[in-house]
Structure formats: C-alpha cells, structure tokens
Amino acid sequence: MTVVTEPELSIRGLVKNYPGVRAIDHLSFEVGAGEIFGIVGPDGAGKTTTMRILAGVLAPDEGGATVAGCDVVREPERVKQLISYMPQRFGLYEDLTVDENIRFYADLFGVRKADRAARSEQLLVACGMSEFRARLAGKLSGGMKQKLGLVCALIHTPRVLLLDEPTNGVDPVSRREFWAMLYSLAGQGVTIVNSTAYLDEAERCHRIALLHQGRLLFCDTPAHLKAQMPGAVVSIVSSEARRVRDEFAIAEGVASVVLVGNAVHLFVDNAERRIPELSARLKSRQIPFDEIVHAVPTIEDLFVEAVREDAAHRGAPIEAPAGGALQ
C-alpha cells in the first residue's frame, strides 16, 4: 500500500450507525496535499456519510478525522474555513444569474469584495463560462450547473475540496471538462476528495478507496491495485454478450463474470490455460464471438473480485456493478 507523508486529510477508525444499518465500518485512510483521492463504491457503500463527516456536518459514532490538522469533531467551524463541500445537490439558486450566485457564495464565505472580482473571473475563464455570467442558473445545462457549483465552492480558495458524486447524470463531454478543472486545481495544490460510482472516474484519481457496505476493500493507486490482482482477466467480445455471461456464470476456473458493454470479462485462474477451453466451449454451443483475449484488468474487475471474496468470506450474496458504474 502506498504510504502518504504529511497527510492533508486523515480519518481513523470511523464508525457511523443508522437504525439497523452500519453505514461506515471502521474506515481509515489518508490523503496527501494536492492529491485527487477517489472514494469509490455503489449506492449504500458509505460514500456520502464519509463526506458529510469530513465536512463537519455529521458526527461519527466512533473514530475521528482531521483536515489540515484540525479535528472535524471538536473544531467543525474551523474546519469549514479550510474546506469546501459540494454535495450531490449543490444549492444553486435557479432564479439568480451566474454572477449573482457567485456573489452570494462569496458573501457567505466572507470573501473580500476587493478579491471577489478577480477570483470570479479566473474561475469562470477556467471553466469556460465567462460568456454566461448574465444567464439564470435555472437555464443552464446539467454540466454547466455542476461547473457553476464548482466555481461557487472554490470562490473562497479552500485547501480541501470535497465533491460528493459531482458528475452524476452529467453528459460525457461535460464530465471531461469537469475533470480537466480538477487536474488544474490539484496542480495548484488543492486537495480533492471525490466520491463516485463511475468506474472510469476511479481510473482518473491519483489514489482510490474502494468501499463496500461501509468497509474499505482496497486503498492505493489504480495501477498498483490492478497489478496486484491474483489470477487473470479474459475478455470475450460478442454480439450475444449476455448469452456468453450466462454460459460461463458457473464454469471451471472462472471465479466471476462481468458484462462490459459488448464484451464479457471473466476472472480466471490462468488465462493461457482457460482461453482455449473457453473458445472451444463457445464454438460447441454455437455462441458467436469476435475476440477472446487476455485483457488488462479494470477497476470494475478489481471491485467485482474484491466483493466476491468479501461475500464468500462473510457468506453474503454477491453484488456486481453494471453498465460501467457501480449500482
């Protein structure tokens, strides 16, 4: 596991319970300054609860967390001066213009008028929204609303930016533009914690924490996590991908099967040995396929295998992601 020196953010043994549910189960990790850190998992994994604790708006039942050395439980107001928290539904005022929303949040964060104009202009240029300053927020597209939310969240120049699934429901082009802004911010030294169920976004983070039912499965760089996976991944491209998935749901040497677009990823014990066997079985069943190859594992493969092992250890049912996002 990668060791982070002088963490900007640290959580230790966090536990949070709701009636009948343990939302966070002894969660611990650290985030370095200028790092883009992803909290990745499906609905119910504990992502939003973790973010709310880090933002100082929710108290844990056990454990603690610090931001820039400040305790989020004992010093929540001091922490709020160092961070900006952008929840899933950021509070833009749709009957105000872009400029008026920015001015409102600048006043809320206590930004001096002398600094406001320059900071606002810098952020609007960075996100390509300068020409929309007079437009009502309610008339913006979903992607532009998220970018305006980010501008408002950054108007007071926070050290740590907490983003709770900021691109959920945003079109792919706007998501790329949003991530370009995040890389720019990280380059300026801003620490970013981004929760997401989008697996491609997990690949873009410097490091990720994979969560499942409130527990930490893995925490490291995407590349290192994938390199440490035991076994191998075989990718089968087929016009009848669902049929391929069903065929190998239970097969010798196959631990798990995941649909990835028009392909099926099979987690196997040995790719070189299993590919000829899998190919022969497809042909004997007259299931068409275009390609069967030893593939580079994805974060989705990692997550499915980690959940499978966790479920097998606890005797629980296995959950699998679908459609490129964790559901």
Rank of each mutant, 00 (worst) to 15 (best):
F289R: 13
A232T: 04
E309D: 09
P317E: 13
D290C: 01
V258H: 07
I236G: 04
A295R: 09
E272L: 09
D220F: 11
V307R: 01
A322M: 01
P276H: 14
Q228L: 12
P222G: 12
E272W: 01
A322F: 04
A251Y: 11
R281S: 14
A280D: 12
S235G: 04
D246R: 10
A322T: 08
S238E: 00
H313N: 05
V233T: 15
I318L: 11
P288N: 05
I292M: 14
I318C: 00
S235F: 01
A311V: 09
S239R: 12
R245S: 09
A255S: 04
R285D: 11
A312I: 00
H313D: 07
D269R: 10
V234K: 05
R242G: 14
T298L: 08
I299T: 08
F218I: 00
I275H: 00
D246K: 09
E300D: 10
A311Q: 10
H294Q: 11
H224I: 11
I292L: 15
V254C: 07
E319T: 11
P317A: 10
P317Q: 11
V234A: 03
A241Y: 12
A320H: 05
M229Q: 08
E272K: 13
F218D: 08
K283E: 13
S279V: 15
L225P: 04
S279G: 11
C219G: 00
I275S: 00
P288S: 01
I250M: 02
E305I: 00
S238C: 02
A316C: 01
A255C: 00
T298N: 02
E300K: 02
T298V: 05
P288T: 07
V260Q: 15
V268T: 10
P288G: 06
K283G: 13
P317R: 07
V244K: 07
V237K: 14
L266N: 04
Q228I: 02
E277A: 13
A263P: 09
L278H: 05
P276L: 13
D246P: 00
A227C: 02
G315Y: 05
I292A: 14
M229D: 03
G261E: 12
R243Q: 09
V293W: 04
A311W: 09
A241Q: 12
I299S: 02
V244Y: 06
N270A: 07
M229G: 03
V268C: 10
V304M: 08
A311D: 10
T221D: 07
D220C: 10
F267C: 02
G323C: 12
V257Y: 02
L302G: 03
P321H: 11
F303S: 06
P230A: 06
A271C: 07
R285C: 10
G231P: 05
D301N: 12
D301Y: 07
N270C: 09
V260D: 15
H313L: 13
V304P: 06
S279D: 13
Q286A: 12
T221P: 04
F218M: 07
E272V: 03
V237A: 15
E319R: 10
V254G: 02
R242M: 01
I250G: 00
D220A: 09
I299K: 05
F303K: 06
